[in-house]
Design a binder for these strands. Structure first.
Lengths: 224, 224
DNA sequence: ATACTCTAAATTGTATACATTTTGGAATAG
DNA sequence: CTATTCCAAAATGTATACAATTTAGAGTAT
């Protein structure tokens, strides 16, 4: 895993763009980044090109790179796209046949969150954990589909500056509990081999996630 | 549109990889490419990074770039992914509302191919035209969906070395005629506002395209 | 004041030189 | 003959110098 500098820089940029350290619309100045990270412009430029291909920044030839901005409509559209893709992941995972180790591994994602929710509220410290097990749940299904193109497409579509990693919006307990029920249902449908129902349950799950995020963003926009 | 050298090189590579001039599995040597194109390694490397992000090549750190190889299973998976995505494009295009100019423009893609097929056989010279109007049909629907993420995901998934641009396999008249009927049906469903049926008609259309390509590839593999 | 031109600074794009890593084969030991 | 070690050649990764383009602001004319 001894990567090249450019890849480390790419990881650095990805993280800071997704988390909002580099805000949407802000310019990414090559020399500044080079000084910040202690390398020359060469690997910086290589990393920036990757960010462009990953749709995290906009590239304007001879002008530079700007962190990509998403309107609420665009975010909604991205979630709708993700919804059909993750639905497909469920269907193909079933069609391919689920191993017992997969079923157990997926079950763990649910029981871990069970523990957190048992208290009736979600502690600040648990949010990171919740994000971990939530991501695990989704990623394991995607991997179980055995469809590389699908995985790549989902990656492309889910990484949105300042949204993907936004922690705050998920703090509403009721919503988290509701999504947790979705996961439980999806797990059940998968294990019972009900490919079609699992597909659409996942679709709806992701669509609701998108609805929630967009509504939260609109809220924040109008108030602050 | 006055692009940078790196972008020109990227276009050059993309074209040659998709068309099979650079065969899957073959190594892309930086200095050789630099000599071929008459530029230094710098823009070559920039372009190669893009090819990596577009999944047209595999990048092995400190080793180099190799044109990506797809197994029949992977190609099938890519088509299945594309199928749900283009299905979504149909649904969203309807939900968004179709302009008259769009309907006519889409209709033209059908009538143009009508002319070609009227003779009962497909001339060699027409194949390029057919590919043009076929691509137009699909792209117009994608554009009409107004979903940028969706368009990006489809681009990612449809560009497969030596397959996307393979002309030969589409030369079977009956198959082309059948797909043409699909287009006619999809156009009709779209214009009648039947979003759900259009979604699944397109899904099935693309899936059948995948079936055909994979079967042709297997054929060619076992014979040659 | 406004709009325009022109120039210098700033920024990105490319070429080249150098550093690091990988590769391949000769030499050698078993 | 096989396997191993080691070194030189080749290829990729990075830094730096230079070219081309864009940007910003002073100066000027209307």
């Amino acid at each position: 895993m001894a990567n090249t500098r450019a890849q480390e820089i790419a990881e650095h940029l990805r993280k800071n763009i997704l988390s909002g350290t580099y805000l949407p619309g802000s310019r990414l100045h090559e020399e500044t980044l080079a000084e910040e990270t202690g390398v020359s412009r060469t690997p910086i430029r290589a990393a920036l090109r990757l960010m462009d291909a990953e749709r995290l920044v906009n590239y304007f030839p001879n002008k530079g790179y700007v962190v990509r901005e998403y309107s609420p409509d665009q975010i909604r559209a991205a979630y709708q796209t993700r919804a059909v893709l993750e639905g497909l992941a469920c269907r193909q995972a079933v069609e391919r046949g689920l191993s017992n180790s997969f079923k157990n591994s997926l079950k763990k994602c649910i029981t871990e969150i069970d523990v957190m929710l048992k208290k009736g509220s979600l502690h600040k410290d648990n949010v990171l954990q919740w994000r971990h097990w939530n991501a695990q749940f989704h990623n394991q299904i995607i991997e179980a589909s055995g469809n590389e193109s699908l995985a790549a497409a989902i990656n492309l579509v889910t990484r949105i500056p300042m949204v993907s990693n936004s922690i705050i919006v998920w703090s509403t307990f009721d919503v988290v509990a509701n999504f947790h029920e979705h996961h439980r249902q999806i797990h059940d449908l998968l294990c019972r081999g009900l490919a079609g129902r699992a597909e659409f349950a996942m679709r709806e799950h992701v669509e609701q996630g998108g609805d929630f995020i967009v509504s939260k963003l609109m809220e924040a926009e109008s108030s602050g």
